[in-house]
Write a protein that binds this DNA or RNA. Sequence first.
DNA 1: CCATAGTAGACAAACGGTTGTCTTATTGTC
DNA 2: GACAATAAGACAACCGTTTGTCTACTATGG
Lengths: 349, 349
Amino acid sequence: MPKKTSSDPSAQRRVSLKMLAEYLDLSPATVSFVLNNAPGRSIPPATRERVKAAAKKFGYQPSQIARSLQGLKTQTIGILLPELGEGYHSQVLSGAADVLMREGYFFFTAHHRHRKDLVAEYPRILQARGVDGILAIDTHLEGALPAPTVSVGGHLHLPGVTNVVLDHHRAAELALGHLYRLGHRKIAYMHGQPFSSDSQSRWQSTMQVARALSLEVPNDLVIQLDKDLNTPELGYPVTHQLLLQRKDFTALLCFNDISAIGSIRALHDAGLKVPEDVSVLGFDDIQAASYIVPSLTTIRQPLQHMGAQAATSLLKKLAHEKLPETIKVDPELVVRESTAQARTHPRRS
Amino acid sequence: MPKKTSSDPSAQRRVSLKMLAEYLDLSPATVSFVLNNAPGRSIPPATRERVKAAAKKFGYQPSQIARSLQGLKTQTIGILLPELGEGYHSQVLSGAADVLMREGYFFFTAHHRHRKDLVAEYPRILQARGVDGILAIDTHLEGALPAPTVSVGGHLHLPGVTNVVLDHHRAAELALGHLYRLGHRKIAYMHGQPFSSDSQSRWQSTMQVARALSLEVPNDLVIQLDKDLNTPELGYPVTHQLLLQRKDFTALLCFNDISAIGSIRALHDAGLKVPEDVSVLGFDDIQAASYIVPSLTTIRQPLQHMGAQAATSLLKKLAHEKLPETIKVDPELVVRESTAQARTHPRRS
DNA sequence: CCATAGTAGACAAACGGTTGTCTTATTGTC
DNA sequence: GACAATAAGACAACCGTTTGTCTACTATGG
């Protein structure tokens, strides 16, 4: 049973504008004017000093809540994302948070685990809590939002919602271009899971670039992820399967780093060396990419930067600047050990 | 130049209690009573229904801000942490966030990068924004806090602040016990960086347990981390150094997983096999621990659980329950590939 | 000396709710 | 039929700010 006894040691009442005013024998209004340096009011320097001194003395801190009630901006943002913790979303969040805090904004984060009811409910609750704007990370928004919104990696276009996305075409160019320059012509491709938000656009871009480079993409060199996993096990079985069918490819373009790590293991178990026999290219540049042996060549998504870009855009939007519908962000090729010059002679099987 | 033209598509004014009351031809008070199911007031069912129907019809959402102003609880928590993004803090945050959201709380996260001025400033700002309580993750708090506070991994004890920490003694028992049972008697120890918050307590616990097991800890089997790195490079040079001096140890107890990965590489480069020649034990259980070859046996810190525990405790504290000063959380041994039976015969050098 | 213009600040009305007190009908009781 | 008790709801104060309007006083110019 809860006890009511504990007298909070931290419960000293905060001083309010009124108390300050009473102490100073001034009206709250005057004090407010001084502390906010409001224009159009004449207050003699002596009084100003008196007020400021008292404010400092009592550690006066204006109540944001009362301010908000006036319909002023709250300097608060609501951030919607699927999960907190490791990975993609956290990186984006981190980039956004840096910008927001630097600009004097605080933010709520609301994670919804892709639950539709929560995705629908949270924007309203956030509005009730007075957010000036909403930042949605990898969140499938529906319907009109109750506040200015910018999204990162959103797959659909809502009117008035600016979307920050990776330039998938550029990513494909970097990836295939790298392999092409290393002499690879027989490349195996990995298609992402159908439910993953990037699968579609990434695949289309990859195919476009492949055509542009006159690379053939035979069906039996395409493998398809299906499991909902976040471990290397994701890539192992499909790669194993691929090896049973065809062995005459010199490179494997993976959907992400996690699956690439599984693929490398599968290749290794089949007696193939990476990168000597097969080059493997990842996507994302997760932390583990640089740890594993061989370290992974990959396409880095500048997640932090995307978050920062989104936050900056949202702040601009709040300042009534016009924004483009879509903001593309450039990926980056990170060359490590898992890719090398293509074999010129067929490997003995 | 910012344009003022953009007419927000999302700007339809929210309906307030007053508007609702006017529409219903009732006083705001009555509406408030109905919607809050306030006791001690007699309202006929018919009116109740009318009110509820109207509220639903207009999508009425009470303003948390106005409520807060009454001095009511805001159902808001402020979370202080060093960084957002990958790693330790994010995991703890994730665990805490789950509990808070489940209980209907929202939270601000404020990251301070260990900057003293921010650590001092944020609690006050959070209070001005009306938080009911503060959760501090790996944050060096000083002085009295303006709200009930619980901390995770805080190194110092503040009066009235409950601290959630790992049971370091238990961790040492798990680690050394595991190695001991595998027959290891000559164990090399790694001491954490002096600036890392856990170094001290972990080292002390380890030494205690070593004594209890009658394990000798000769000076030349102790290595000391010093660099402020978050990559395997952290563990490489010190392990290399150790190998130059002594080669007759059968196990290495690392300070964390990151350094363990570097150590494994150093051992590998020196021609030693893990775990056949040397067993390596990590700490933390980061994601990469299961990816690398050999996968890492490690002591898992239940970070999510610690976060959840802290959040639960804070909510209890807000309900005026008495809490212990310190809450210890149990670590967990995760056995993977990097540890094995100790060599019974000296390795050929 | 009086009208006029500043100056310094008070007053009060919001903002959107909560909650204690008061009023008006309606009913029930003897 | 007089009276109290109860039901149904209005009224108003308040939370801590901001901000438009108003007033008292002082100084200035003619």
